[in-house]
């Protein structure tokens, strides 16, 4: 099978998985307990790393941008520059990449180990659909928690940027906050929330698919875990471009 055929087959498999996952939502049992458990493990478990990532990204944005802004006498726009960059792009993308690394790998490794130890076969033999029992709760948990994590990353990023602006460049805190408030529009926020919803589907479906198609024992688990992280990270970055284009179309060129 050449690369193109392999790609198309994988795309078809992921589409089928997406369909089965959606059907899993419609039929009983719905495994709400499992969804809550996954939200805790994915959402609450990732909060620390996502907040740290957001904080230092916001900080470095101001660190790099402030001297240039100062050169043009635009220090008062410091808040706006960090807010737009973070909320539109860096917040959703970096948050998704961190979650792909932490959660995507865990999902793929867990499901892969279950395949290798025949637990998935056992589940099917016992009359349970692995898509409904394992995939649906994980994808839904990601779709619900990733936007929330992104908001946390954004908030911590803005705080980080503010701290650097105030204590390293002696910018007045009120100027920073005023610039933030003026810079953020409702469209920015909506776009910044839509993106992680899509990224949640991407990370969840790719990681589950890679885990469930693991072949070749423990070595296979390692390979599917790596593939899950690499493929979901690349897909997130590519999807971000197209999503931004679509959102631009929706909200107007000037905003996106």
């Amino acid at each position: 099978m050449n690369s193109l055929s392999r790609f198309l087959v994988e795309l078809q498999d992921i589409s089928f998985l997406f369909w089965r996952m959606l059907r899993g939502l419609r039929k009983q049992p719905r495994y709400f307990d499992e969804m809550i458990r996954q939200m805790d493990s994915i959402g609450v478990g990732s909060l620390a790393i996502v907040s740290l990532t957001g904080f230092f990204t916001g900080s470095v944005l101001i660190l790099q941008a402030y001297p240039t802004l100062e050169y043009y006498g635009a220090q008062s726009s410091a808040g706006q520059s960090v807010a737009i960059t973070l909320i539109r792009e860096l917040g959703p993308v970096l948050c998704a990449l961190m979650v792909a690394g932490r959660v995507g790998s865990a999902i793929s490794a867990e499901l892969g180990s279950m395949v290798v130890s025949q637990q998935i076969d056992a589940m099917r033999a016992l009359g349970t659909s692995p898509a409904r029992k394992l995939v649906t709760p994980r994808v839904i948990a990601l779709v619900v928690t990733l936007p929330l994590l992104t908001v946390a990353a954004d908030v911590f990023g803005l705080i980080g940027g503010g701290i650097i602006a105030r204590y390293l460049y002696a910018l007045d805190a009120n100027t920073y906050i005023t610039s933030l408030r003026a810079g953020i529009t409702i469209q920015d926020i909506i776009g910044g929330i839509i993106k992680p919803i899509v990224f949640g589907f991407i990370i969840g479906l790719i990681s589950c698919h890679k885990g469930l198609t693991t072949q070749g024992g423990t070595v296979g688990v390692g390979k599917s875990t790596t593939d899950a992280v690499v493929l979901s990270s690349i897909t997130v970055i590519i999807a971000d471009f197209f999503l931004s284009k679509v959102l631009q179309g929706f909200f107007g060129n000037t905003l996106f």
Partner: peptide, 15 residues
Amino acid sequence: RKKIGMVFQEGALFD
């Protein structure tokens, strides 16, 4: 499958 019980090689218990 409800009519059939399956015993797997290594047990395949849910960890």
